[in-house]
């Protein structure tokens, strides 16, 4: 019952902790026990694609002897946009030190000027600066995945998932979580649609559909079983492949080249009949 002892100590110390926090803004900033850090240390690289968010981990450590609550405020320079401006947390004065982490999403608009910018995180008496490098748009010529980072829209998205999860360039099912895949939001209700709008109309002839297929969640039990691949040509959706009875994690659909400005996966059934789950959708010219 080690935690009980910690709690008792904290009980006596909480008031002091608050006092320290207040006082440190005034005369004794060196006394502030909070240490801030960002991971990766080298900073963040981000591209102005609509559906390709970048991120860093903010680390907050209480190096003092009293538990406290800290507010860390975040501000970004230039075109950089953060998905949150504040991280507040209880920071225990555990021994050894415990670092509380929070993911900070970083994006830039399509027209962001490539260059170096920074994000600043501050709390009473502590600060960390995170370099942000805005990269030029990647070329999307022959052989490139045209769906990478482009705007995705879904019929619904489960509350714990991000609609961009299936165009983030990550095809690793073992990292299935709220960030690298897409899961629809209506259990047991089909069809579900997942659309990716391309940056510009292109002649396409291949779509790679990656559905959930990990050691814990094999495709044969959790993946998409029946789905259609559609492309939007001249404003109308047309079906270019019908996949039925699938049990694999990756399905390649090849078809006669067609000039399209969007691709849609229509989920008709999953192997356990609840949700449509996509790890990645890739679109190629050949």
């Amino acid at each position: 019952m080690k935690r009980r002892q910690i709690a008792v100590v904290a009980g006596a110390a909480t008031v002091l902790g608050l006092l320290t926090a207040v006082a440190s803004t005034a005369a004794r900033p060196d006394d502030d026990p909070v240490r801030l850090a960002a991971t990766p240390e080298g900073g963040v690289r981000v591209v102005g694609l609509p559906c390709l968010p970048s991120s860093f981990q903010l680390g907050m450590t209480n190096a003092g002897t009293a538990d406290l609550y800290a507010d860390v405020e975040l501000a970004a320079g230039g075109p950089v946009v953060l998905d949150r401006r504040l991280v507040s947390s209880w920071l225990p004065a555990w021994d050894p030190d415990h670092t509380v982490t929070a993911r900070i999403g970083v994006t830039v608009p399509l027209d962001a000027e490539p260059g170096s910018y920074e994000v600043r995180a501050t709390t009473d008496g502590a600060e960390v600066t995170v370099p942000v490098e805005v990269l030029p748009q990647p070329p999307k010529g022959d052989g490139a995945n045209l769906a990478l980072g482009e705007q995705a829209v879904a019929s619904s998205t489960h509350a714990n998932f991000d609609v961009c999860g299936a165009v983030d360039g990550n095809t690793d099912s073992e990292q299935w979580d709220t960030l690298t895949g897409w899961n629809d939001g209506t259990s047991g209700v089909f069809p579900d649609t997942y659309d990716v709008t391309l940056a510009a109309p292109a002649s396409i002839s291949r779509v790679e559909t990656w559905t959930l297929d990990s050691t814990r969640y094999p495709a044969a039990r959790y993946g998409l079983r029946d789905f259609d691949v559609q492309v939007r040509a001249g404003g109308a959706w047309q079906t270019v492949d019908e996949v039925r009875g699938n049990t694999a994690g990756r399905v390649t659909s090849t078809f006669a080249p067609v000039t399209a400005d969007a691709v849609r996966i229509v989920g008709l059934a999953s192997n356990n009949r609840d949700y449509s789950r996509l790890i990645e959708v890739e679109v190629f010219t050949s």
């Binding site: 609550y69 507010d71 998905d83 949150r84 504040l86 991280v87 507040s88 947390s89 209880w90 509380v100 929070a102 509350a159 714990n160 991000d162 709220t178």
Partner: peptide
């Protein structure tokens, strides 16, 4: 706001 889409973990 976008933060309402996240699972709550931190105090804010």
């Amino acid at each position: 706001p976008a933060d309402t889409l996240r699972e709550t973990v931190t105090l804010d």
